[in-house]
Simulated assay, not measured.
Amino acid sequence: MVEAWRITGQAEIDSYVGSRVELAVQLINSLATPHAHGRGVTPPPPGADRLAAVVAAQERLTVHPPASVLTPADADRLAGIAARLRPLFAAGDHLLDAAAGLNDLLVRHHAVPNLHGSPANPLGLSFHRPDADPVDAWAADMGTALAMVIGVGQSARLGACQAERCSLVFYDTTRNASRRFCDLSCQNRAKASAYRARRRA
């Protein structure tokens, strides 16, 4: 089985980077998306509901970030970070502006390559300092991972659903970066809508 972050024939994105991009996708879709699958959605309100959404988003990942005790205030900060990361997906002609915002986020959350480890655990590369609080750590890791995807010329893989009234984002791991929809249900909705339009014409 080919891991989700390996892109055949393209510059390779390693597991750590791929997992942090997926974390960004989950947080954006949970906390900063106004439409999903043809319906308007209301992001979770601040407090316990928003924290529950963050925990649920984390549980949907195949590779989890380091265990952290998050608070409702942390979840509120992560919602703001998700909103700031969202413009990087399907940025198109606005990529330079989106990248400027990403650079600001990297500085604000003290992103820095750092080897973490202990006598009992092997050293591993992270993008945050060992003493970073959980929100800064997640923001630095997600931001750097997205910067690495963009930096190797793969920004087209940061996509947004093209179905009507769906603004969910995704990380495209197809061979030729041809994905256009968040999932099969939106793809089928778009096909049905196009078919009806042709019939009317």
Rank of each mutant, 00 (worst) to 15 (best):
P65H: 02
R77M: 09
V41C: 08
A36Q: 12
L27W: 01
L115T: 01
L102C: 04
L102Y: 02
A91P: 03
P134C: 07
A57P: 07
R77T: 09
V55M: 10
P113S: 02
I81R: 11
G124Y: 00
P119T: 03
A83D: 10
A91K: 04
D133R: 04
G151L: 08
Q154E: 14
A75K: 06
N114I: 00
L70R: 10
A120H: 06
P130L: 06
L96D: 15
L85G: 06
G80M: 07
A156T: 12
L85T: 06
A111Q: 05
D133P: 06
P122Q: 00
L70S: 11
T71R: 10
P130Y: 01
D97M: 11
L123V: 00
V63I: 14
R77E: 12
T33F: 02
H64N: 04
D136P: 06
D131C: 04
H64C: 00
R129C: 02
M142W: 01
P119S: 06
W138A: 14
H128L: 01
L78R: 01
E164C: 04
T144S: 15
P122R: 01
P87A: 09
H37Q: 13
A75E: 08
S126D: 05
A99M: 13
H37S: 14
L102I: 06
A73P: 03
D74K: 05
H110N: 13
H94T: 15
A73H: 11
S126Q: 11
V135C: 11
T42L: 10
I81K: 02
G47M: 09
R129Q: 15
Q154V: 09
H128A: 13
L146S: 06
A163G: 12
H109D: 03
